[in-house]
Computed example of a mutant assay.
Amino acid sequence: MTVGERIAPVDEVPEETTVLFTVREVATDERTEGILVRSNGTITSWLNYCQHLTHIRLDKGSGAGLRDGEIVCTNHGAMFDADTGQCTYGPCEGAYLNALDVTIENDGVYLTDDAYEFVALGPAETDDLDLTSTSNVEF
């Protein structure tokens, strides 16, 4: 019997981009996003934000780019190893993405992280209307 909630079928996790999904943090009831990444024959999962500026999403809804086994943050060029989550290049070099525990069973990817519950595929819905600038220019 599988422990956890099914996120997606294994064969729907592409090798050239990510799968975006929403989770709910159990302790705070806050919704946030995660991504599934296929690299080197394995599937890993990370919270969907850059370690340089944590309001920046890696997958903005159409998939994050992957290049040579690394997730690319398109806002400022940081590169994260898809297997370990370590930033290998960019302003947050040496930092790590926050992992979400997943397991592969019965041709599916399941969320097995006790701190989160799977909500749905796709981006987190928000009621907030944020009109602030999202510019990353530092003055």
Rank of each mutant, 00 (worst) to 15 (best):
V37H: 10
T74L: 00
Y49N: 12
A99K: 14
A115P: 05
G41R: 04
S135C: 08
E30M: 08
L58I: 10
V23E: 05
C87K: 00
S135D: 11
L121N: 12
I35E: 02
G41T: 04
C50Q: 01
Q51W: 02
D113H: 13
G77T: 00
Y49L: 03
D68I: 03
T42L: 06
F21N: 05
P9A: 11
T32Y: 07
P9K: 13
E30W: 06
H76M: 01
A95I: 01
D114F: 07
S62W: 10
A27C: 07
C92E: 02
G94D: 09
G41F: 08
D127N: 14
V102I: 15
G94A: 04
F139M: 10
E33T: 12
E15K: 06
E105C: 11
R57F: 11
N40R: 15
A78M: 00
I43C: 02
Q86L: 10
T132N: 13
L97C: 08
V109N: 10
N40A: 15
D81M: 01
Q51L: 05
I43L: 03
D114Y: 09
C92T: 03
D68M: 03
I7F: 07
S45N: 07
N48H: 06
L53H: 05
H76S: 00
C73G: 00
Q51M: 13
T54Q: 12
V109P: 11
M1R: 09
I56T: 03
V10T: 13
D81E: 03
D107L: 08
